[in-house]
Simulated scan of single mutants.
Amino acid sequence: MGMQFSVLASGSTGNAFYIETEQHRLLVDAGLSGKQLEQLFAQIDRDLRELTAILVTHEHSDHIKGLGVIARKYQLPIYANEKTWKAMEGLIGDIPTEQKFIFPLGTVRSFGDLEVESFGVSHDAAEPMFFVFHHEGKKLALITDTGYVSDRMKGIIKNADVFIFESNHDVEMLRMGRYPWNVKRRILSDVGHVSNEEAGLALADVIGDRTKRIYLAHLSQDNNIKELARMTVAQTLENRGLAVGEQFALYDTDPKIATKLVYV
């Protein structure tokens, strides 16, 4: 079967990512209502009842909004690091002890035929972490919600077959936009979000010979446009000698429409 995935929803209003192998079906984050998540699963012809587990990146509401609801409804195990579990107290309701699991930062956990590697990012949460998925020699890297992409992060995600990569905002749109200055400063900071140009520069350092697909994720609804993000990232990559559309393809993600379920 190989490894299949879908970016179910991505953006400032809610995030959810799905990945499956022959043995396991995982959801990363549940930042939408239970009803919305059920609808997104229907878009890719899948069912929440078939999930093996939910992995949590951090405690911000756009990543855990529906977590407690679906975990209780479908009796799903949740994996998060200790600091994230503590930060989620009071935000997701009571979770039975038998559904709570610790996934420490900087470790690899096996889900049967799927190896999941966690790594830290720079974001204003308790202990935010994202994941690299390994299956039968294939590698998928998921990274959003970081103020910058360090050399350490680049080393972990380098030469993935697929990248789901943050391209949160256009800097000028953000500077000229309606947000109060303290919010703008947070987004632009080292614990905020990566801009379109920063995404392109970071991707130029990690794209390898095996890279075939890049999905631009977590776009701000107020401070970005899909076409602008794609154009800026593509231009930045081409300036670094990378042929977008030839070596690899660049894809959009959406806050309400799941990407097509595809093989890595």
Score class of each variant (00 low, 15 high):
Val206Asp: 11
Arg230Cys: 10
Asp205Trp: 10
Leu216Met: 12
Ala229Asn: 12
Asn196Glu: 10
Leu228Tyr: 12
Ile214Leu: 07
Ser220His: 06
Ala217Ser: 14
Leu201Pro: 03
Thr211Cys: 13
Arg210Gln: 15
Gly200Val: 01
Arg230Val: 13
Arg210Tyr: 09
Glu198Cys: 05
Gly200Gln: 03
Asn223Gly: 10
Leu201Glu: 08
Leu219Gln: 08
Leu201Gly: 02
Ser195Asp: 10
Glu197Asn: 01
Ile207Glu: 07
Leu203Arg: 03
Ala204Glu: 08
Ala199Gln: 01
Asn223Glu: 12
Ala202Asn: 09
Arg213Met: 05
Asp205His: 11
Leu219Met: 15
Ser195Leu: 05
Gln221Phe: 10
Asn224Arg: 05
Asp209Phe: 13
Met231Ser: 05
Gly200Ile: 01
Met231Ile: 06
Arg210Leu: 04
Ala217Ile: 03
Gly208Thr: 14
Leu201Cys: 00
Ser220Tyr: 10
Gln221Glu: 14
Asp209Asn: 15
Asn196Trp: 01
Asn196Cys: 08
Ile207Gln: 06
Ala229Leu: 12
Leu201Phe: 02
Glu227Val: 13
Asp222His: 13
Thr232Ala: 10
Gln221Tyr: 12
Asp209Thr: 14
Gln221Arg: 15
Ala229Gln: 07
Leu203Trp: 04
Ala199Gly: 15
Asp209Arg: 15
Asp205Ile: 00
Gly208Arg: 13
Thr211Asn: 13
Val206Met: 11
Asn224Trp: 04
Ser220Thr: 02
Glu198Lys: 11
His218Ala: 09
Gly200Glu: 05
Thr211Pro: 13
Gln221Asn: 11
Leu228Thr: 05
Arg213His: 03
Met231Phe: 09
Glu198His: 09
Lys226Pro: 05
Arg230Lys: 12
Ala199Trp: 04
Ile225Cys: 02
Ala217Leu: 09
Ala199Ser: 15
Thr232Phe: 06
Tyr215Lys: 01
Asp222Leu: 14
Ser220Glu: 06
Leu203Phe: 06
Ile214Tyr: 01
Ile207His: 04
Glu227Lys: 14
Leu201Asp: 03
Leu216Asp: 00
Ile207Pro: 00
Arg213Glu: 05
Ala199Lys: 01
Thr232Gly: 02
Asn224Glu: 15
Ala199Arg: 07
Lys226Ala: 12
Arg230Glu: 12
Glu198Val: 09
Leu216Gln: 06
Ala229Asp: 11
Met231Lys: 12
Ala204Asn: 07
Ala217Met: 06
Leu203Gly: 04
Ile214His: 00
Arg213Ala: 02
Lys212Gly: 06
Leu203Cys: 00
Ala217Arg: 05
Asn196Lys: 00
Asp205Glu: 15
Glu227Asn: 13
Asp209Ile: 14
Asn196Gly: 09
Ile225Val: 12
Ile225Pro: 00
Asn223Ala: 15
Lys212Cys: 02
Ile214Cys: 05
His218Leu: 00
Asp222Met: 11
Leu216Cys: 10
Thr211Ile: 10
Val206Asn: 02
Leu201Ile: 05
Thr232Arg: 07
Asp209Ala: 15
Lys212Asn: 07
Ala202Thr: 04
Tyr215His: 06
Ser195Ala: 00
Glu198Ile: 08
Val233Leu: 10
Ala229Lys: 08
Gln221Gly: 15
Ala202Glu: 04
Ala202Cys: 01
Ser195Arg: 01
Glu197Gln: 07
Asn223Met: 10
Val233Met: 10
Asn196Ser: 08
Ser195Asn: 01
Met231Glu: 14
Arg213Val: 06
Arg210His: 11
Ile207Thr: 09
Lys212Tyr: 01
Ala204Asp: 09
Ile225Gly: 03
His218Val: 08
Ile207Cys: 08
Tyr215Arg: 07
Ile207Met: 10
Ala217Lys: 03
